[in-house]
Amino acid sequence: MHKMKLDAVVIMQIYELIFSIYANHEDLEGMQDILVRAKKASSYFHRKETYAIYYNMLSEYYDILLDGFYDTDNQDEERVLNKMLDAIEKTLFYSKQNISYDINHLYVKNILAKATILMRSNRGTIRKIDKLITNAKRIIIENTTEYADVRLQYYLVCAWYYALVQDDKDMAEVFIKDALELSNVIIPTDLQKIEDVIIPCANIYFELCCYNQAIGLLYKGTRLCFKHINTDSYAFIRQQLYNHFFQVGIEAQQVEWCQKMIKLIEIENKEIVDEKNRVIIPEEVRSL
């Protein structure tokens, strides 16, 4: 009986791994195929743990479709957001009993995901968001180690909370620094560090109009990319970083920042062997 339970979870985790590979490549068809297979498997095993993993994957799928557009008036995006919230609620329901021995911390991760959506979609009251974050903090303290990856998610959610809800730059920065320090210990690749921490933290600084800090983080990201200057997997994120940099520079009316970055890009592009991996400088930026 116990072996069957273990095998069921392992199989679902394999689906989860394959799903994440498709997600990293933005392969919607591949993600949809895995979701169909995972749904059948979770129904076959008929266990809370397998349902929790499936609905967590489903919520991630809807999150990818939304691409950050949580606060929207678009009806199609509203429907996707509603489906995502429903998948989160189902994940919470099926993962609640396994808090103490769930190595993936699905329950608390989905509490934090729900808090994030309520903040960024303007759907939740401060009291409700506070309650979710406080509950998440208690569970994390009681059930995770010092270097658990869910703590990184917690720091980022708290940073967003102080930026969007409380407009408290100092407290937001405390959690940004916590996130950056933890990421240096637990994130294995520069690419993941840029995607999961550096860009989100730069966005938080941008939201707070802390342009110097945002620029500093984005520049740090470009230096990490420079270490992998001719690696294909870094080309897209390098372009993203520079696009964000120019967005902040224009908003801050810092033409000099943009000019210096254009010169740096032109120098680096000469070192990139494959032309398709070179950074494209938008004409509206050059015209500055």
Rank of each mutant, 00 (worst) to 15 (best):
R151H: 09
G124I: 05
S183Q: 09
T125V: 10
A136Y: 10
I140W: 04
V185K: 15
S121R: 03
L164H: 04
A172N: 01
T144S: 11
D168F: 05
L164T: 06
Q166S: 05
T134D: 15
K128T: 12
I117N: 00
R127N: 12
D170F: 07
V150E: 01
T125W: 03
I139P: 07
N110W: 05
G124W: 06
I186G: 09
Y162P: 01
T144V: 12
T134A: 13
D168C: 04
L112R: 02
L118Y: 11
T125H: 07
D190P: 12
I117S: 02
K128V: 11
V185M: 11
Y161V: 01
K128I: 10
T116D: 06
G124L: 09
Q166F: 00
T134P: 01
E181D: 14
P188I: 08
K114P: 03
I129Y: 06
K109S: 14
Y161L: 06
N135C: 12
Y155Q: 08
L156G: 01
E146P: 01
A159L: 04
E146Y: 08
M119I: 05
I133Q: 03
E142D: 15
L182Q: 06
D149P: 08
D178E: 15
A113N: 11
A115G: 07
L191C: 10
E173A: 02
D130G: 07
S121M: 08
I111M: 14
K109N: 13
D149C: 08
W160M: 03
K114L: 14
R120T: 02
R123E: 13
K193Q: 15
Y155T: 07
Q166T: 02
D149Q: 14
I140F: 06
Y147W: 13
A136N: 08
E195T: 10
M119D: 01
Q166V: 01
K177D: 11
L152V: 07
E195K: 11
D190T: 09
I133R: 02
Q166P: 00
K109F: 06
W160T: 00
K114G: 03
F175W: 10
D170V: 10
I133V: 12
D170E: 14
I133M: 07
I126G: 03
T125F: 07
A113S: 13
I194A: 04
V165L: 07
R138S: 15
Y161N: 01
N184K: 15
M171K: 09
D178N: 15
I186R: 12
A163H: 00
E146M: 13
E195F: 07
V185F: 10
R151F: 08
A172E: 02
K169A: 04
Y154K: 03
I133S: 03
S121I: 04
L180E: 13
L156K: 02
Y154H: 10
R120P: 03
T134H: 12
S183V: 09
K169W: 02
D149T: 11
Y161C: 02
V165Q: 05
N135I: 08
E181W: 07
A159G: 04
A159Q: 01
Y162R: 00
R138L: 12
I111L: 15
A163D: 00
E142L: 14
N143K: 11
Y147N: 14
L156V: 09
Q153A: 05
I133N: 02
L182H: 08
I139S: 07
P188G: 06
T189M: 13
V165I: 15
N110D: 08
I133W: 03
V157T: 09
I126K: 15
L112P: 00
V157G: 01
